Simulated assay, not measured.
Amino acid sequence: MTKATVGIIMGSRSDLGIMEEAADVLKELGIDYELTVVSAHRTPERMFNYAQNAAERGLKIIIAGAGGAAHLPGMVASITHLPVIGVPVKSSNSIDGWDSVLSILQMPNGIPVATVALNAAKNAGILAAQILGTSDGKIAERVIKFKSDLKNKIEESAENLKAEGYPSSF
């Protein structure tokens, strides 16, 4: 088993459908990760132990997804020196997701949490890869290729629309 460099945690198993998107992009980019449930409210000791021991276990970045009050990313960031990327999750008990967004976004000075858009775990995975790529040339190359592939897909879509007869002067 390889050693994970990115930890993906979520406040509830119901967040897995969203948080798997971070895992999928990390897998695509060849970055080892771990994924588990850690609740700030229901298992605070587990959260504390996870965050306190993350760097010692080899993690370099933590992606934390949470819905509702969404305290998990901020609480983890208050315990570890590692960068934390927060993913606000629109959950069944949320106020259209805004409570999660604001809970993660509005951190006090000294406890930063990088925050992606609502349900945007894929962007959290990409951001984690970009951060790791600043000190690992192989990861940087894979991120550059990933972004180039995105560009190529859009260019191809535009050409396909033209070929299907949709008017465009661009």
Rank of each mutant, 00 (worst) to 15 (best):
A55H: 06
D32Q: 11
H71M: 02
R57Q: 14
D96T: 02
P73W: 00
T5V: 12
Y166F: 15
D24Y: 06
L161N: 10
G67N: 02
P73A: 04
K3N: 15
V143I: 08
S100V: 06
T43C: 05
D24W: 07
D136F: 08
I61M: 06
V25W: 04
K90H: 12
E155F: 05
Y33N: 09
K145I: 00
K138V: 10
A114I: 07
S94R: 01
R142F: 05
Q130Y: 01
F146N: 07
K147W: 04
I18P: 05
S94P: 04
M47C: 05
V116Y: 00
Y33H: 15
V84H: 02
P44M: 01
G68R: 00
R42Q: 10
A70H: 05
M19R: 03
V84S: 04
D15Q: 01
T134F: 09
Q106L: 12
G97W: 11
I31G: 14
P112M: 01
Y166G: 02
Y166C: 01
L150E: 14
N53Q: 11
A54R: 00
V113I: 03
W98E: 12
P83T: 00
A51E: 00
S91E: 02
R57A: 13
A66T: 12
D149P: 07
K122G: 01
E21A: 15
G165M: 09
L132Q: 06
E21K: 15
S169W: 12
R13E: 09
E28D: 15
A77S: 14
S39G: 13
A128P: 11
D24S: 09
A140V: 04
I104Q: 02
V113F: 11
S169T: 04
S39C: 07
E156H: 09
H71K: 05
V84T: 03
R42F: 09
E159D: 14
R42H: 12
T43K: 03
T43A: 10
T43L: 04
S103M: 08
E141C: 02
